[in-house]
Amino acid sequence: MLEQVITSTKIIVTPHLSAEEMERLIFYCKGEEANPCVIMDNHPLDARDAMLNEWQKIRPVEILNNVFPNPKVEDIMDMANTLQDKKINVVIGIGGGSSLDSAKGVAVILSNGGDLEEYLGATPSKKIEQHNVQLILIPTTAGTGSEVTKVGVYTSRSGRKYTLGHPCMQADIAVLVTEYVKNLPPALTASTAFDALSHALETLWNRNATPLTDKIATESAVYLLKNMEAAYESSLSGKETGRTEMLQGACMAGIGFNITGTAAVHALSFIFSEEWDIPHGIACAFTLEDVFRLNLRDEKTRVRLVEVAKRLFDKENEDDLLSSLLNRIISLKKKFGLPFSFRDLNIELPETKIGELFNKSLEDPKMKNNSTEITSRIIFDLIKSKINKNIESCR
């Protein structure tokens, strides 16, 4: 994965991680003074749990598993307060995006003090200034890319979701353990794959795009689209095809959007998570093809998406290439059982509520990154179109 030369995070790719290797890694980070803790969720994962059990025979390790989807400020503060007097100097996050973001949040508080909510929003009362603990992130899903980004997403006590970003939140080390993703269930394989694909595409249709990010995002989008169907099929059959590729593809996409930020798909996704607790990857997949169409209005975006399509389809005409790329995304959504309409989500949304709920996304800085300007009228039409849509009408 050549893209790792672009990130400050050291990336280790390994099929298996033993307790002895983890102990060595911690020693290399902090020497004999190392005092680590682990932040993770409470879902069983045999390979991870076996490693941690063996590691605790080598040294006592503080393990906190108070992590839930769409991580909440209060849960992160509970963990940080538990660790406050333990002189922790290495924080290890193991899990999906919620676990990795929670580990970042805990590390921020251990390094800078205060309450995480004080760092959130457009006018925070505190600023991140220090990175005093080593941060090691180990993903167990192939989607978020959080292991190589300087951002975390947190739900405030009011229920609003905020993106917090700072270079001090960048992991020192990311460990991609292919064993940890080989048994991902089909639904999680599908949703995290679309989260990763959204990262790659939103890096392309982004006002902050550069030739460097165009290259990374093109490579990751092509790599993901070539492998995500195989990964999904292997999740159904119990095989491992495509799992390593998706883990690395998601990491590649993370390196790209860490530079540009995300855009309209992610800004809209936050509303779904805030209002209806829709899992993040599913919320991103929900509007992906719609925002794709909107961004074709931007000529630079069209050129970038044509380049992706040329790598996937043997066609010459630009319109044919773009149509094939869009149809590929839609067909994968259908195959993966991902939602196209509010009916698919079992949500009833009156048209009169669209503005009240979704215009909040216009305040999100991510929306301003989108290559095509998104207005309240555009949002209304987009969301309205999905109230009564059925899967057969999606092409």
Rank of each mutant, 00 (worst) to 15 (best):
V5I: 14
I6A: 11
T7C: 09
S8Q: 06
P15D: 15
H16S: 08
A19L: 08
A19T: 02
R24Q: 12
F27V: 11
Y28A: 06
Y28Q: 08
A34R: 10
V38C: 09
M40Y: 05
D46A: 12
A50F: 08
I58G: 06
P60F: 13
V61Y: 07
L64Y: 07
V67I: 05
F68E: 08
N70C: 09
E74Q: 07
L83A: 05
I88M: 07
V90G: 02
V91Q: 04
I94H: 04
G97E: 00
G97Q: 04
G97N: 01
L100A: 00
I109V: 14
L110N: 01
N112W: 14
G114E: 04
L116I: 15
E117G: 09
G121T: 05
S125I: 15
K126W: 01
K126P: 03
I128D: 03
E129I: 09
E129Q: 11
N132W: 12
N132S: 15
L137I: 05
I138L: 04
P139A: 07
P139H: 08
P139V: 10
G143L: 00
S146M: 03
V148C: 02
S156Q: 04
S156M: 06
R157W: 01
T163R: 03
H166Q: 02
H166I: 02
H166C: 03
P167F: 09
C168T: 15
Q170F: 05
V177Q: 06
V181I: 12
N183F: 08
P185E: 01
P186L: 10
P186F: 12
S191Q: 09
F194Q: 02
H199P: 03
A200G: 07
L204Y: 14
W205G: 10
N206Q: 07
T210M: 07
D214L: 03
I216C: 10
M228A: 10
L236K: 10
L236I: 13
G238A: 06
K239S: 12
G242H: 01
R243A: 10
E245T: 09
L247E: 04
A250Q: 01
I255H: 01
F257V: 04
T260R: 01
T260F: 00
G261V: 10
T262W: 00
A263K: 09
A263W: 03
A264N: 11
A264Q: 06
I278M: 00
G281K: 00
F286T: 03
F292L: 10
L294D: 14
L294R: 06
L296S: 07
R297N: 15
E299Q: 14
R302A: 08
V303Y: 05
L312K: 08
D314C: 10
E316L: 10
N317M: 04
N317I: 12
L322I: 10
S323C: 14
L326P: 13
L326G: 03
R328S: 15
R328N: 15
K334Q: 13
K335C: 08
F336G: 05
R343H: 12
R343M: 12
N346R: 04
T352W: 04
T352E: 13
E356G: 11
L357I: 05
F358Y: 00
N359G: 13
E363V: 12
K366F: 13
K368W: 08
I374M: 06
I378W: 04
D381L: 07
I383E: 00
I383C: 02
I383D: 01
K384E: 14
R395V: 15
R395N: 15
